[in-house]
Structures are given as structure tokens and as C-alpha cells.
Design a protein around this nucleic acid. Structure first.
Lengths: 114, 114
DNA sequence: TTGGAATATTCGATCCTTCGCATATAGTAT
DNA sequence: ATACTATATGCGAAGGATCGAATATTCCAA
């Protein structure tokens, strides 16, 4: 496989390699949301959300639709949702080790994923 | 979902977010290989391969088995292979746009993935 | 046409990643 | 013990990612 193709895949993983961007994709799984919706649900700076959306857009993981003042985002291809679903399974399977890997153990109860 | 879990997933994507590490995982899909085998097949610096293997190990994506002088690596959980298989489907589906995204078009024929 | 709301972009500081080079460790054989 | 092979680790330079603050753009309403 040529290196350019490997780079393409790596870029997509790179786009997913941030907690906020994962949160965005997962929030969008149930349907489109505006940038403002995401900002509110995630409780982060407007500029920051917009920057993360720009990353996801640049790799074509999300598409956007303008409606007046607002911009609505959705996941472009359900394959990406499947990838995240697989990751959830992976996480559940390796929950113990996963917790061991986490830097901060905040003593909360075992979380159920999503 | 707590942020720590999002970070866990992001870390795994981060581990996959490099062309060389993707190549390693894909090479390991058919069975275990030694670090030397990988070095030879990928034609990269010994230290570099070892560093990438360290990343994959630290996120527990691969496991290793010592046999005398050598260290044999394999993918820990087939779910990771499934994730890469999905990515291959994704790539084929969006081949045209993908090529548009690639920086360097070297004029070669349309590649068949793997 | 001025104002306000929603979103995007630019900038600079800080941190993280990646690489090659050099060196360290571990196993094997002589 | 010595030497050799396989693999890992430490280091420093170069480039890339992330953030908040400030600013720009776009659209609508009065």
C-alpha cells in the first residue's frame, strides 16, 4: 500500500484523536446539531468548538448545512459511527485495563459508556 | 460520558494516527512478526520502528512475546483489526474525495487498497 | 443601515510528536 | 569474559496541535 494511502487513514484517525472531537461525533450520532448546540452541550469556548469543527470538516468527517444564522452539522458517513461503536465495545471489553491506564482516578462509580 | 473515557478513546485513535503505526498493525493482521521483520518490511530506522512499537504497546494495542533474542508482536484484540477494516471500506467509498485531499498526486494508477 | 446573534478565522504561547543519532540492555554463542 | 545480534531508551531539534483572546464574517431584524 502506498504511503499516501496510509497517510490518508492516519489523518482520519488524527481527526478523531481528541476527546472534544469524539464528543462532537457522538453527539451528532442522533442527528444534526448546530454549532451553538454543540457549544452549549459541551460547555466549551465558542472558538474552540469552531476550531474542532474545522478539523472535522477539513477531513470531511462532518458536513454542514447553513440555515439562516446557524450552521448545522452532521456526520457524513455512518461508517464513522460504526467505528466509534466498535471503540465502545473495545472499551467495555478492556474496562479494567483501561481504568488502569487512565491518569486520574476520581473515585466515581464505574461508568456505563454512553 | 465522563471526559476521562473520551480521553481513553482519543488516546487509542492517537496511537493509530500515524502512517507507520497503521502499517505495523496491518502487517500484524496476518500473524505475529518480530520487530526486525517489521523493520525490514517497512524499511525504516530500527529506532524509529521501536519507538512506534512503544507507542502501540503503551496503549495496549499490541502485545509482545519474547523468544530468545527476538521480540514478536501481535495485535491484542481483533476489534482493532475490524476498525481498520472499516477504515478500508470508508476509504474505498470516498476514494475520489480522498485523492482530492491528498497533497501529492504522483500520477500513479488508482491503487487497490492493501 | 445600524445592531445583534451565530459562527469562523487569525495570532501567539505552550505543549506534544516525530525523527535520527547515540547509547543502553538483553540474549546468545564462542 | 568477550563479542555479536536484536531491541529499547534518552536526548535534542524541528514541526504540529491546542488553547484563549481578539477580530472577522455572515445573516437577520428593527
Amino acid at each position: 500500500m502506498p504511503d499516501s494511502l496510509r497517510r490518508f487513514k492516519a489523518d482520519i484517525f488524527q481527526a478523531l484523536a481528541h476527546p472534544t472531537r469524539i464528543a462532537i461525533i457522538e453527539l451528532l450520532e442522533d442527528g444534526e446539531l448546530s454549532a451553538g448546540d454543540l457549544m452549549e452541550k459541551l460547555g466549551m469556548e465558542q472558538a474552540n468548538i469552531s476550531q474542532h469543527l474545522a478539523v472535522l470538516r477539513s477531513k470531511q468527517l462532518v458536513v454542514n448545512r447553513k440555515a439562516g444564522n446557524q450552521v448545522f452539522y452532521s456526520v457524513r458517513d455512518p461508517i464513522i459511527n460504526k467505528v466509534l461503536a466498535l471503540m465502545r465495545r473495545y472499551f467495555q471489553k478492556h474496562l479494567k485495563e483501561a481504568l488502569g491506564l487512565l491518569d486520574e482516578m476520581d473515585g466515581s462509580t464505574i461508568p456505563t459508556d454512553r
